[in-house]
Amino acid sequence: MDVFMKGLSKAKEGVVAAAEKTKQGVAEAAGKTKEGVLYVGSKTKEGVVHGVATVAEKTKEQVTNVGGAVVTGVTAVAQKTVEGAGSIAAATGFVKKDQLGKNEEGAPQEGILEDMPVDPDNEAYEMPSEEGYQDYEPEA
């Protein structure tokens, strides 16, 4: 019985440690998101679009440190934060509304985080759909 109880105690310690790591990862992701939003706020009209992409990228980098179902929630929060940063930029006159959601080359930025393969159960990952990809044929 002692062996059984000791095993359960060790398992509990492992769960607590994993929860603490997840909590730490979420806190880091939130900190990076805040950094990115402050970065966007300090940019001029020309830099705002690039700044919004930076927020998304920093958040995406930190999301990889967070495991399990938390990833889905962090990704949703990050996307809403990026959308909010863009709205703030438009409201303050840093950028025109028609410039939001495009990178410096004018290509749409939507789907940055949505296409990231995420499995809350950590069982399997699927690649994003290939609808947006084109076949590449090298020139002879």
Results as ranks from 00 to 15, higher is better:
54 T>W: 12
124 A>D: 14
101 G>F: 13
74 V>P: 01
35 E>N: 13
66 V>D: 01
40 V>T: 01
80 K>Y: 14
100 L>T: 06
105 E>S: 04
48 V>S: 01
96 K>Q: 07
113 L>K: 07
128 P>H: 04
91 A>F: 13
134 Q>Y: 08
7 G>T: 09
9 S>M: 14
106 G>H: 08
88 I>L: 09
39 Y>K: 06
47 G>S: 14
91 A>V: 11
78 A>P: 02
62 Q>N: 08
49 V>P: 02
94 F>K: 03
138 P>D: 06
127 M>E: 14
55 V>P: 01
55 V>Y: 13
113 L>E: 13
131 E>W: 06
1 M>P: 00
9 S>Q: 09
81 T>E: 02
67 G>V: 10
64 T>M: 06
58 K>A: 13
39 Y>A: 02
117 P>T: 08
139 E>R: 08
91 A>H: 11
8 L>R: 00
83 E>I: 11
115 D>G: 14
117 P>M: 07
78 A>R: 07
3 V>A: 03
21 K>L: 12
136 Y>D: 02
12 K>D: 00
31 G>Q: 12
19 A>G: 02
70 V>L: 14
19 A>N: 00
8 L>V: 04
70 V>I: 10
73 G>E: 04
44 T>H: 02
19 A>D: 00
28 E>I: 06
45 K>V: 12
83 E>Y: 10
99 Q>H: 13
114 E>W: 09
91 A>P: 04
49 V>W: 14
65 N>F: 09
40 V>L: 14
3 V>L: 06
61 E>H: 04
33 T>V: 14
9 S>H: 09
66 V>E: 01
93 G>A: 12
89 A>W: 15
115 D>E: 12
82 V>H: 03
107 A>T: 08
24 Q>T: 15
110 E>Y: 12
138 P>T: 06
136 Y>E: 03
28 E>V: 12
40 V>K: 01
134 Q>W: 09
31 G>M: 15
134 Q>L: 10
63 V>A: 04
74 V>I: 03
20 E>D: 06
16 V>R: 08
76 A>N: 11
81 T>K: 02
77 V>D: 01
80 K>V: 08
131 E>L: 05
97 K>V: 15
81 T>C: 09
25 G>L: 15
21 K>P: 00
1 M>R: 00
72 T>C: 11
60 K>F: 06
52 V>T: 01
123 E>N: 09
5 M>G: 01
19 A>K: 02
53 A>R: 05
108 P>S: 08
69 A>Y: 12
135 D>Q: 09
106 G>N: 04
138 P>Y: 07
24 Q>M: 15
33 T>G: 03
115 D>F: 10
108 P>F: 12
77 V>F: 07
52 V>H: 01
73 G>P: 02
118 V>A: 09
8 L>D: 00
93 G>S: 06
27 A>F: 12
127 M>F: 10
110 E>Q: 06
91 A>K: 04
29 A>Y: 15
134 Q>A: 06
58 K>P: 01
41 G>M: 13
2 D>Y: 15
86 G>P: 06
37 V>L: 15
21 K>N: 03
50 H>R: 13
136 Y>C: 09
114 E>I: 12
15 V>G: 00
72 T>W: 08
46 E>R: 05
103 N>G: 06
73 G>M: 15
95 V>L: 13
95 V>R: 10
60 K>S: 04
14 G>E: 11
41 G>T: 13
35 E>H: 07
46 E>K: 05
25 G>E: 08
20 E>F: 13
36 G>H: 15
87 S>N: 09
30 A>W: 08
123 E>A: 06
60 K>V: 10
80 K>G: 04
81 T>M: 11
100 L>E: 09
25 G>V: 14
23 K>I: 02
112 I>M: 06
109 Q>T: 10
92 T>K: 02
97 K>E: 06
87 S>C: 11
33 T>R: 01
7 G>R: 15
88 I>N: 02
110 E>I: 06
44 T>K: 01
140 A>T: 13
8 L>G: 00
20 E>G: 02
34 K>M: 03
47 G>E: 04
